[in-house]
Amino acid sequence: MTVAATPGLEYQAERARSRRGFLLGLPAVIYLLVFFVIPLGIVVAYSFATRTRTGRTELTDWNIDAYGRLGESVVRAVAFRSLWIAAVSTIICLVLAYPLAYFISTRRPVTRNLLLVGVMIPFWSNFLIRTYAWRVLLDSDGIFTQVVSGLGLGDGRILFTSKAVILGLVYGYLPFMVLPLYASIERIDWSLVEGARDLYASGWTAFRRVVWPLSRPGVVAGSILVFVPSFGAYVTPAILGGNKKGLMGSYIVDQFMDARNGPLGASLSVVVLAVMLVGTLVYFRQGGRNL
């Protein structure tokens, strides 16, 4: 960098550069303003608007009635059921993914890459079709149903129940748990574990006191990546949960499509958005930028 002769010139050059940067970003700024920020603003406005008798949403008589309805037992039941299903799915994903991520991280590089590709392929494959695959398995004469019932493991007919939805969510979002867990376990400095073992820690103690705390960012990141989309899930419940409108995603869709209650649907969307924002803030707090 050349040294500017006068501070004034340097300042002007800096200004010009900053203006160039702004102009480069401008098309995207305008696009997102029109097609993202304004739509978001309209949804927020809807949540404070009035529903007319015919089901139209009028942007007049601002009120917080829609948010008041969140306390109603029907809406609360939907919210809690969604929270519960999302939480159970997240825990199952964590239990399945942690040992797998640990296993992958401790392989030799060539094997490790192959195993990772094995996780990447479902991660990138069409989500809708992967969910539909379970619809085939869970059908009354599907393989899953027959195997489970045949082995006497209980009733295999779980299609159109919460169990099927949880199964579908776990199947759909498991790669989202494995990848961040892998990222954080892989970078653990194993000499720390060696040190613990040298100090007579048992394998289990070394894991609990060294490996687990060091992999925490991955646990938090993975949990959020599974929990947030599970909470607002629409496709999985629609395919595996039948037509029951008991979950947040489908309940919101229902408000706009059938019930024609724009303000309620909008206020629920804002709530889902808030859940997601809180989750993301926690994610960044944990320094979990590493997917």
């Binding site: 097609f35 739509p39 978001l40 309209i42 919101i252 706009f256």
Partner: peptide
């Protein structure tokens, strides 16, 4: 979430 984005675009 997909659903929120979808509602935003539709509205």
């Amino acid at each position: 979430p997909d659903v929120t984005m979808a509602v935003m675009m539709m509205v």
